Amino acid sequence: MAVFTTVSRDELARWLQSFDLGELLGYEGIASGIENTNYFVDLARGRFVLTLFERLSPQELPFYLELMKHLASHGIACPDPVADREGRLLSTLHAKPAALVTRLAGRARMDPGPAHCALVGEALARMHLAAVDYPGTLPNLRGLPWWVETTPKVLPFLSTDQSALLRDELATQQRFADGRVCAALPRTAVHADLFRDNVLFDQAADGSPRLGGVIDFYFAGVDSWVFDLAVTVNDWCIVDADGRFDDAKLAALLGAYRAVRRPSEAEAEAWPTMLRAAALRFWLSRLFDLHLPRPAEMVTPKDPAEFERILSARRDSASAPLC
């Protein structure tokens, strides 16, 4: 979420005329993230988020928008895409594909406790089950084929030790992908990027945290549930300094997930490898975004070293069992 494309107030007001949402009261760019242009938009009939898609094609975008619509209709707290007067969820602004979604209450919690992690684990399991009857078929665009394609592009920027680590882990993941365990993993459309900054919380009357909702589905794709779970715990349940797991947070998140949906035997067997796969995916993407950036008004590249540490930690120590 960054501002790559500047939209003036007059341009936005004209675009909004195709919606039945009332007068434009205000808007502002959202500076965090690195993929799309995003604005908060306040209208007479509510608060929304406008996204202009900088990389995704109009052919890919219905998958994401219809997935959010599907999950919202199944009671999942997530942005609900808004149709214009002609029933379209996707249109064009500044020659870019553009969509408007509802804005959720709350804010991200970058220092979550076990109670926050439990809410995330429950929500993730419910999302997986809700997606079972979603018919979209777009693969995870940051999955294994992208890792294979991207590795040669980032290798020139790495040290000898880093190159060896990257090559070895990629080979491990390629072998796993060809095996029987990977073939047995349940999969649907998954979020694939459920980091702390993609979940909002507010507060219940008794002061306990309450889930506001899950945002930013634009890395979603069809992948295994256990990979999606591994992505989540690798961000929510770690000691930031070294990438080790915080045992209390991990137990809370996995316990809440299992209370809704019990992982299969294949998922339990795949768990250590999927934790490594999830770390590899984000180490690679952060290397790519750091060393091969695009110009933008507001961009905050994230540190690849964090996921290098997490990958090394997952390779060097046994993970807690999934089941």
Rank of each mutant, 00 (worst) to 15 (best):
R9M: 08
A13E: 15
D20F: 07
E23G: 09
A31I: 03
S32M: 12
Y39T: 04
F40L: 03
R45W: 00
L56Y: 01
Y64E: 13
Y64N: 03
I76E: 03
A77W: 01
P81I: 04
V82M: 04
E86N: 12
L90N: 11
L93Q: 05
L93H: 05
A115Q: 15
H116N: 11
A123T: 12
H128K: 07
A131C: 06
P135V: 07
P139G: 04
P139N: 04
V148W: 00
P156D: 00
L158Y: 09
R167P: 00
E169D: 06
A171E: 09
Q174R: 13
V181K: 00
A184S: 13
A184H: 00
L185W: 02
L194R: 09
Q203I: 10
G213N: 12
V214G: 12
I215G: 10
I215L: 12
F217W: 13
W236D: 14
G243F: 09
A248L: 09
A252I: 13
A259S: 12
A259R: 08
V260Q: 13
E269Q: 15
T273K: 04
R276A: 15
W283L: 13
F288A: 14
P293H: 06
V299A: 13
R315F: 10
A318N: 09
A318F: 00
P321W: 14
C323K: 14
